[in-house]
Design a protein around this nucleic acid. Sequence first.
DNA 1: CCTACCGATCGGTAGG
DNA 2: CCTACCGATCGGTAGG
Lengths: 193, 193
Amino acid sequence: MTRLTRDDIISSAGRRFATYGYHGTSMRDLGDDLGILGSSIYAHVGGKQELLIAVVDRGAAFFAESAQLAKRDGSGALDTLQRLIAGHIDVVLDHRSEARTYLAEVPFLDDADRRSILDARDAYEDVFVGVIEEGIDGGSIGAHNDARLSAIYVLSILNAIDRWYDESGRLTREELATDMYTFVCTGLCRGPR
Amino acid sequence: MTRLTRDDIISSAGRRFATYGYHGTSMRDLGDDLGILGSSIYAHVGGKQELLIAVVDRGAAFFAESAQLAKRDGSGALDTLQRLIAGHIDVVLDHRSEARTYLAEVPFLDDADRRSILDARDAYEDVFVGVIEEGIDGGSIGAHNDARLSAIYVLSILNAIDRWYDESGRLTREELATDMYTFVCTGLCRGPR
DNA sequence: CCTACCGATCGGTAGG
DNA sequence: CCTACCGATCGGTAGG
């Protein structure tokens, strides 16, 4: 039994917040998870809000990193979009607690922190919008699409994935990424466009 | 100032739950909204959980009703899908509090109630799956689509709408329904299928 | 629907 | 990281 680090506590808090929500979690709950008293957490961290900020910041960083990688490695709009989709799925499934807390508990941040996270979210969304606009300009994406709305649709699908995807089910993560990209690119309907 | 009804209290509770979450709402908060004491709510309602159940049940009923209408009035799979989409948007925007609470606070229901709501959700999802399968059988929807996954994608987009749509913005609800249906049907990419 | 409470739990602190 | 607390707030009740 070695001593806990600040990172241990943030990870553990993320798990609780993701499952029970920020307001559904007490400092004593967090202590129980860690095998210490709730009050002992204050030796590592300033307070409950600080824990929420730390978890949400981690989530934001994972998404931002994923977007940078997709932009760097993508060749062409559709390839970059495909990488953005696969990267988002990886973040959501590899960092479920942070991603879920990032997606659901932001309203409970203090004003200043909430605003800065919403800005980060907008910047991430803008990457999707930019890639779709690029596709429209280059001819690979239909000009009838509204880039902003399309980005929101794609992100809505991506953000919901952790609520239903079962890692131990028959659908692999890669199959999901491919199926979802095909849906987004091609749509459901048959016949010529 | 006439006396409050049970329905008034459920509506008010829905607004609080939708904004601050179940665990972020106290009985005293609810009382403040209603202009009475928190303890006075117990004259109308058994407890906080009962309020959550009532709000969530209302949400479930709105969605179920919408699905029945779409199935009844739709002519063909694609028309029914279009009606399902427009109906879902109407529920989410006309009954924001109930819809949001239904979508977000179900994990905080007691076991039995949660299970029955999850069953209702599955039944609603199955309507979407059924319509997509019908479209595949009839040839209007491409056979390469996985009906279950496609239904989840469509519902993910629909369920996220209340988090970004601004009723007083430039996009009307009808435009949104049309744009979203086009996205779902046609996809983003240009070129033959 | 209010008065007057109840025991339990909350986030957090002083001092070690 | 624990001991020993603090005042505030929680969901809820008895009696009117």
